[in-house]
Amino acid sequence: DPDRMRLYLAHHDGDILAAATMLTVGTHVWYSYGASTSRRREVQPNNAIQWRMMTDAHELGATVYDFRGITDTLDETDHLVGLLRFKAGAGGEAAEYLGEWDFPLNRLLHKALDLYMTRR
C-alpha cells in the first residue's frame, strides 16, 4: 500500500526546517519519527507537519493518531518535558503499553552495542 508510510517535510522560504514519518496500519496511524532544526522555530514547523499528518490521517479514515512515547516524569529538568508538552497540547491522552524488548540475533554484536551505548 503506497499510503502505508509517508514522509513529510516542512518548508519555509526554501529551507527544510522539519521532517517526520507517518505509518498507517488499518485505522491506526503513528507519528513514527521526526526531527527539526533549531532555526526559525518561531514559524513552528513541527506544528505544521503534525496538523498536515493529522488531516491526512483523518482523510485515510484513521480512528487513532498515535504520537508514541512520552517521558515518565514532569520534572522540568528532564530534556523531554518540552516534547511531552507538545504532544499533550494536541489534546490526547497518555496510554501505557508493554514496551519494547531486544531479541539479539548475534550476542557478541549485541554486547558490543550495549558497551558502546553506555560510553557514548
Rank of each mutant, 00 (worst) to 15 (best):
residue 15 D to A: 14
residue 115 L to A: 13
residue 21 T to I: 01
residue 95 A to R: 15
residue 47 N to M: 07
residue 59 E to Y: 11
residue 89 G to N: 13
residue 43 V to H: 11
residue 98 L to W: 13
residue 91 G to A: 07
residue 16 I to W: 12
residue 8 Y to K: 04
residue 56 D to C: 02
residue 45 P to K: 03
residue 34 G to T: 03
residue 12 H to F: 10
residue 42 E to T: 10
residue 85 R to D: 03
residue 17 L to S: 03
residue 2 P to W: 06
residue 29 V to W: 02
residue 18 A to S: 10
residue 69 G to N: 08
residue 101 W to Q: 12
residue 83 L to Q: 14
residue 79 H to S: 08
residue 40 R to W: 11
residue 88 A to V: 12
residue 21 T to A: 00
residue 46 N to D: 03
residue 38 S to Q: 13
residue 1 D to C: 02
residue 75 D to L: 10
residue 14 G to Q: 00
residue 109 L to D: 10
residue 79 H to N: 07
residue 44 Q to M: 11
residue 76 E to G: 04
residue 11 H to V: 11
residue 37 T to D: 01
residue 26 G to H: 03
residue 41 R to T: 09
residue 107 R to N: 14
residue 58 H to D: 10
residue 9 L to V: 10
residue 86 F to V: 00
residue 3 D to P: 12
residue 81 V to K: 00
residue 14 G to R: 02
residue 14 G to V: 04
residue 10 A to R: 08
residue 1 D to F: 06
residue 77 T to A: 12
residue 98 L to C: 15
residue 9 L to H: 10
residue 117 M to R: 14
residue 89 G to Q: 12
residue 116 Y to A: 07
residue 7 L to V: 13
residue 58 H to Q: 12
residue 24 T to A: 08
residue 38 S to R: 15
residue 22 M to D: 07
residue 75 D to H: 08
residue 51 W to K: 03
